[in-house]
Simulated scan of single mutants.
Amino acid sequence: MLSLRISVPADLTDDVLAVLEGADQVTGLAVMRGASVIPPGDVVTADVAREGANPVIEALRGLGVHREGAIRVEPVETWLSRPAFDAEAEAPGASADAVVWTEVGNRAYADSELNWTYTTFMVLATLIAGIAIVLDSPILVIGAMVLGPEFGPIAALGVALVRRKGQLFAIAARTLVLGFLAGMAATFVAGVAGRVFGWVTYEDIVGERPNTAFIYTPDRWSFIVAVIAAAAGVLSVTSARTGGLSGVFISVTTVPAAANVSLGAAFAAWHEVTGSLAQLGLNLTGMAVAGWATLALQRAVWSRVPARRVTMLRRRPVVGRPPE
């Protein structure tokens, strides 16, 4: 269930109410006349079943509410309402499967913003990955992979391709490239400093590293894991079930590969550089393509759900225990 709070100019209020009253998925509709100061007008609140939210939000956007006022969409974790239960039962598909495109789009833009926080996390993650390579420590590799924030813009690339948003694609690609360059530059400088002070030797970089050799030796399994992990990550994002994201971060070797490129360059170990660049490119490509394919499949499947759902409802009663 989602809660809508709409600040709307008074001259649009009746049109907004007509849209909400005409949607079977909407319950708990209320209007507070004159309650909005900016913009001057009214405040309308309503509850809407998550799986029926997209057409309602698009209809409100069609009225221009978002240009002159505001539409706030918030998840409702706990609720008790027989009308709301009936609205969810009648809505197409299942709530857990519903993709609210406005929610996904907003998150994609937010996660793709190039700011000091994103850049700092990328630098710190890459530095930790560099230390993991020197120490041949798989635990530190995992830590660096979890710390890295790169999945946000990678997922945004898929959203941009599916929704045909060129601006979002450019923002996400810029953030991804500049973030990796910042992390790699910092690790390169740290590698040169370690070489000068004698803390890191050439043998530490090119010697036998059984626990971290996968960082610079890409193969078909690297691509397959990247595809599966990205698909799982996109599902976590679109369903608002972020618990699976940690597993996604741990599964794909992006930040450690970038760190190995920097250390290899610092010590002129070019075979390390080429192998790690191949690993990085393979993983990023696999994740971007898988993210796009997952979102495209979700959109295609969801577009066919409403008619099928209505047919099923006609044949059998709604399964589930309504609130007393």
Rank of each mutant, 00 (worst) to 15 (best):
V225C: 00
G52T: 06
R61G: 15
I131M: 12
I38S: 14
A193V: 15
T242A: 07
S7V: 03
E103W: 09
A231M: 14
L263C: 03
T27N: 10
V301Y: 12
R164Y: 06
A296G: 04
I215K: 02
E21C: 01
R174N: 08
A229N: 01
A257R: 03
R299Q: 12
A91W: 10
A96D: 15
R5I: 13
A96C: 03
P40R: 15
G69H: 11
R308M: 05
V8K: 04
G183L: 05
G275A: 04
V273W: 09
F197M: 08
A35T: 10
E324G: 13
M312G: 01
S81Q: 08
L263D: 05
A190G: 06
A232H: 04
A87R: 06
V16C: 13
T13C: 08
P75W: 06
V65F: 12
A89D: 07
G207H: 10
T13K: 07
G64H: 11
A18Y: 08
N211A: 15
A98N: 11
I215A: 00
Q167V: 14
I57L: 15
G152W: 08
F169R: 07
D204C: 05
L284N: 01
V8Q: 09
F121T: 02
G194I: 08
Q25I: 02
P83I: 05
P39R: 05
V252M: 03
P322D: 10
V273C: 04
L12N: 03
E272Y: 00
L295N: 01
V100R: 03
A132M: 08
A213C: 01
F188K: 00
R67F: 13
V192D: 06
V255F: 08
T126P: 06
H66Q: 14
P210F: 11
T212L: 08
A30I: 06
N106C: 00
F85C: 01
L12G: 01
M184Y: 02
V141G: 09
V301T: 10
I139Y: 09
P149R: 06
V43A: 06
W302P: 00
L168A: 01
W302K: 00
E77P: 00
V99N: 04
G34Y: 13
T187K: 05
A96E: 15
L297Q: 02
L135H: 12
E324K: 11
A59D: 15
V318N: 02
W292Q: 01
D14P: 07
A293S: 12
G166T: 09
L140Y: 14
V255E: 07
R164Q: 13
F249I: 02
A172Y: 10
N260P: 01
T242Y: 15
P40D: 14
A23I: 02
E77H: 09
A129K: 06
G194W: 13
G93K: 00
S7T: 09
V31P: 08
A269K: 04
D97L: 04
D11M: 04
Y202S: 10
T285Y: 11
A293H: 10
R316C: 02
T217Q: 14
L80Q: 13
L277W: 12
V177K: 07
A89V: 11
I215R: 01
